[in-house]
Simulated scan of single mutants.
Amino acid sequence: MKRYLTLVLAIVCTTVYAQKIKVEQGSFDFIAGQKEVNVVFDYDSMKLMKENFTNEEYISKRSADLEEKARGKGKTWEKAWNSSRELIWNPKFLELINKYLGEKEGMYFAEDLTDAKYTLIVETVWLYPGWDAGIMKQHAKVTTNLKFVETANKDNILLEVSSKNAPGDQWGNNYSNESRVGEGYAKTAKTLAKLILKKAF
């Protein structure tokens, strides 16, 4: 009976929450023929966890919790968390969107392509890092607004797509919050790329 309950808990805790993607406004007409797209990652209004912590609140709480377990652990985690955008999350998104749209349509997405006609703004709305306790785990979740704008006039939104609860995990165990969130960005990029392939080409 105990083994059965453990198995049930494992199944419940590893359930993948369905990603919801929706076109909020605009059309895909401008995309065909573009070879380069500038990308801007915006984390300014990001919230975390069910409590909707600001990034600063989340860092303060988690760092303090880890410091209680082992001195220095919180500060080490804080450095990893603060660097994860540049080292994991942004590269994961770019890797996957270029894999699908680069190989199939010859498009290239990257930061600092200021001469590109259009810019994709990846605005992070909400994150849940998930957790992994060996036999039981929960995927990370990443919610974003994806806005294609004119590079020269970012107020002109040509296409806006919302992506809710993109799941982040890997096969096997993944004990890194930062890595799990990175997989959520990879899933976001993959889903967006497939939507563009379907609607624009």
Rank of each mutant, 00 (worst) to 15 (best):
A70C: 12
L146Q: 07
P167G: 01
G106W: 10
R62C: 14
N90W: 06
V142N: 10
E51N: 02
L94H: 04
D115G: 01
Y175N: 13
S163K: 05
A166K: 01
E111Q: 07
L101K: 03
N165Y: 07
E103K: 14
P91T: 06
K154Y: 02
S163T: 09
L87Y: 12
E78V: 13
L66N: 09
Y175L: 11
S176M: 07
K141Q: 14
L96M: 12
K137V: 06
R71G: 13
S163V: 12
K92Q: 04
M107E: 08
Y175F: 14
A166Y: 07
N82G: 06
K61V: 11
A152G: 04
G74F: 05
K69E: 10
A110T: 01
S176Q: 12
Q138E: 09
N156F: 10
E150N: 12
Y118T: 02
V125P: 05
P167A: 01
G134C: 13
P91D: 09
A152K: 15
K154A: 00
E95M: 08
S84Y: 00
K99D: 10
K117I: 03
N177V: 02
S176H: 15
E178Q: 15
K99Q: 11
F109P: 06
L146C: 03
L127D: 00
A140P: 05
K50E: 14
S176I: 14
N55D: 13
T119W: 01
K50Y: 03
N156L: 09
G106F: 09
K61S: 01
I59Y: 07
N173C: 07
H139T: 08
K73E: 06
D115W: 05
L113P: 08
G168E: 08
K104N: 12
G172F: 02
K117Q: 14
H139G: 08
I157H: 04
G106S: 04
P167W: 06
A80L: 14
Y175V: 15
Q170W: 09
Y58N: 13
E78I: 13
K92D: 06
E51I: 03
L87S: 06
N174T: 09
W131P: 08
L96H: 05
A70E: 15
S179Y: 12
D112I: 03
P167V: 04
S63Y: 01
S60H: 14
W131I: 07
K69A: 13
E68W: 11
I88E: 11
Y100R: 10
E86K: 15
N173E: 07
G130R: 00
S63F: 01
N98A: 07
N177E: 11
E56V: 06
E68I: 06
G172T: 12
E56C: 05
W126I: 08
F93D: 08
D115P: 05
Q138G: 15
G72W: 06
F109D: 05
A140S: 09
T124R: 02
N145T: 10
A166D: 01
D65N: 07
L96G: 03
N52F: 05
K147M: 10
Y108K: 08
V142Y: 04
W131S: 08
W89A: 04
G102V: 03
K99R: 13
K75A: 09
K99M: 03
G72H: 11
H139K: 07
E105N: 09
Q138K: 09
N177Q: 14
G134P: 04
N52K: 10
K79Q: 15
L66D: 00
W126G: 00
F148M: 04
